[in-house]
Simulated scan of single mutants.
Amino acid sequence: MKLLEKFPKTIKKYNEAIVAFALAVAAAAFIKLPTLFGISLGQNESFYLRNMSLFVLPLLTGYFIWKRRPDTRILPWIALVFIAAGIFANVYAFDRQSDTELLLALHLPITLWLVVGIAYTGGRWSQVGRRMDFIRFSGELFIYYVLIGLGGGVLTLFMALIFNTIAIDIEPFFESWLLPCGAVGAVIIAAWLVELKQDIVESLASMLARLFTPLFTIVLITFLGTLLWTGRGLEIERDVLIAFDMLLIVVLGLLLYSISARAPNSSPGVFDVVQIVLVISALTADVVALWAIAERITELGFTPNRVVALGLNVILLVNLVWSARLYIRFLQGKGSFSDIEKWQTDYLLVYAVWAAIVVIVIPPLFGFV
C-alpha cells in the first residue's frame, strides 16, 4: 500500500529528471548552434560573451514554467523580455575591446535572473515568502554549480592524463565542446538538484552562510582599520574597482542568504549582532569607494566603468543604510524581522532595473566604446 502511495511521487521525480536532462542537452546544443553559421567560439568570443545567458536562462525559465504552471497571461511578457534581451545583446556595434560590451555582458544576466525568479515563484512574485524562496534557491544553485564545476575540473584533469598516455591532446575538445556545453548544461542540472535535494542543500547553504559571514566581517573591519591607520586612499583603477565592488556584492549576497535562511519568528541572537556589524562595515567601505570614485571622476571625467560603478555603489549605499536601520530597530525590539525580509526582496527589482539601464542605455551613451 505504501509502495502504491509513493508511486506517483516517484513518477514525478523521474519526469522532472528527464525534463531537466533534456533541457541541459538543449542548452549544450544551443551554444553550439552558432557554429553552423560560421560563428565559432574561438573567433567570436564577444558574441558568446554577450549571449551566454541567453543560451541557458530561457531554458531554465521554461523548466520552472513547466514545473510551477503559472498563469498563462505572464508567458507573453516573459517571452518579450527574452526577445528584447536578444535584440539588445546583438544590435549594438561595439568597438573592439569595448568596456560597454563587457558591462552589457555582465549586467544582462542580472536582469534576466529576475525573469527566472518570476517563473520560479509561479508568477507569485508579489509574495515576500516566494521571493525569499527564490533567494534561497539562488544561493543553493550557486553552491551546486560550484560543486559540479569542481567535479568537472577533476574529470577533465583525469581525461587529460589518460589520453596523454596515448599521445592524444584533448585540449581542443575541451575548449570547443566540454567547457561551453558543460557550463550551460550544468546550470539546468544544478537547478534540478536543488529542487530534488532542497532540505539537504538548505542545511549546507545555511551553514556556509553562518561560517563566512563573520569571516567577511573580520576582513572588512581589518581593511577599514588598515585604511584608517595608514591614511592611504583607495586607488580606483579598473581592476581594483571591479574587485572591490565584487567584494561588496558578495557581502550583500551573504546578507541576503543569511536573512533567507533565518527563522523569521525567532528572537534576536548573537548572529544578528554579527549581521549588523557586517552591514555597517560594508556601508562604511561603500562610502569609501564612493568617495574614491567621485575623486576619480572629478580628476579624469566620466567613463562607462566609472558611471556604472558610481550607480552600483549608490544603489548598494541605499540598501545598506536602510538595512542597517531596520536591523537596529529589530535588535531593539522596535521592528519585526519581516520588515528586513520585505525590504531586501523589494530591492531585487532595483538591481534588475539598474542592470537593464546598463544594458540598454550605457552603450549608446558612450558610443559603444
Results as ranks from 00 to 15, higher is better:
162 I>Y: 04
113 W>C: 04
291 W>M: 10
245 D>S: 14
332 Q>K: 13
173 F>D: 02
61 T>D: 06
82 F>W: 01
355 A>C: 01
111 T>K: 00
189 I>A: 07
239 D>Y: 08
35 T>L: 03
115 V>I: 15
336 S>E: 15
323 S>M: 14
278 L>A: 15
36 L>E: 11
339 D>C: 00
246 M>A: 15
67 K>A: 13
316 L>A: 09
307 V>P: 09
21 F>R: 00
345 T>P: 09
126 S>F: 13
120 Y>L: 05
331 L>S: 11
27 A>C: 08
337 F>W: 06
335 G>F: 00
1 M>F: 11
108 L>N: 03
338 S>A: 09
183 A>W: 08
265 N>H: 11
62 G>W: 01
155 L>C: 13
234 L>I: 10
75 L>Q: 02
42 G>R: 10
244 F>L: 14
144 Y>I: 13
16 E>T: 01
68 R>W: 02
210 R>V: 01
173 F>K: 00
315 I>H: 10
181 C>K: 04
19 V>C: 10
34 P>D: 05
252 L>V: 15
147 L>W: 06
164 N>E: 11
7 F>I: 07
266 S>D: 13
279 V>Y: 01
127 Q>Y: 08
273 V>Q: 10
234 L>V: 09
48 Y>C: 06
179 L>M: 11
202 E>Q: 11
217 T>A: 12
210 R>M: 08
145 Y>V: 00
177 W>Y: 15
301 G>Q: 01
283 L>Y: 12
366 F>T: 07
12 K>N: 08
115 V>D: 04
74 I>G: 06
229 W>Y: 14
168 I>D: 02
364 P>A: 03
225 G>F: 04
132 M>N: 04
258 S>L: 06
365 L>N: 03
242 I>Y: 13
79 A>S: 10
176 S>L: 09
134 F>Q: 00
211 L>D: 09
36 L>M: 12
304 P>W: 03
45 E>F: 06
182 G>S: 07
